[in-house]
Design a protein around this nucleic acid. Structure first.
Lengths: 117, 117
DNA sequence: ATAATATATGCCGTTACAGGAATGTGTCAA
DNA sequence: TTGACACATTCCTGTAACGGCATATATTAT
């Protein structure tokens, strides 16, 4: 068989750095395509194509006014990604706060104090 | 240009559903490849290849014991993804806790209080 | 040394997909 | 209507991801 089916989910959408950049830009508020083109410094078709992908996945929505099309971020579509990654949170938080580690060391010290006086 | 390499960063690595499944499985503890093969139901080369990608990005580490190779999850490598997605958290939490909605209603009430006494 | 086991790797075919260039579509202005 | 503007879409090309299959490599067992 060939490649796996193109499951167009948010995970795939944000795998592309440029699409993440688009989302970051739109986090500041809705913008017409041309503003994005100027702000990001890419060609207009490139911007439009990435916007099309983001819209398909539901990460952005579009509102037309005259000949301009305003794209707006729909951050809620990132929740599945957030929820998935969050299930792994314990793998770095336990290292950062060090509470558990310190507590355990204390316990070890206390045990050695009592057993080896 | 082609697509970005999957071994480039965790974002690309977890874009593949099968690789996410591998990480979920390894969250329960380290496992040799054959156990993963049986548990996941894929061919051995497929499992090995995905493990190779995950290892390149640093999402898993490997320990050899005899002829078995135990793969262990390194969840910390997911932190960049978590941190990035977290910056968009307000886009769905504000709807859930209703902070924004309540604040806006308050503003409307105050406006109507002053303008329409 | 030979066989069996555990895993990695190389090759191949198919398909995805990013970017460039050109063109299509729809809307406003004169 | 004609032209300018804003944007989408199509065609093309190069690169590489995925999976299957076969094979290589390394370790243990006999």
């Amino acid at each position: 068989m060939a490649r796996a089916a193109t499951t167009l989910d948010p995970f795939n959408a944000i795998a592309e750095p440029k699409r993440r950049k688009v989302l970051e830009t739109l986090a500041g508020g809705e913008q017409p395509v041309n503003d994005l083109v100027e702000c990001l410094g890419w060609s207009q078709p490139v911007v439009s194509k990435h916007l099309a992908v983001l819209k398909e996945v539901g990460l952005v929505s579009m509102r037309q006014h005259g000949r301009q099309r305003f794209y707006r971020l729909n951050g809620e579509a990132l929740k599945p990604v957030h929820d998935w990654v969050k299930t792994f949170e314990r793998f770095w938080t336990t290292h950062l706060d060090g509470i558990k580690t310190r507590a355990e060391r204390k316990q070890r010290e206390q045990r050695s104090n009592t057993s080896v006086p």
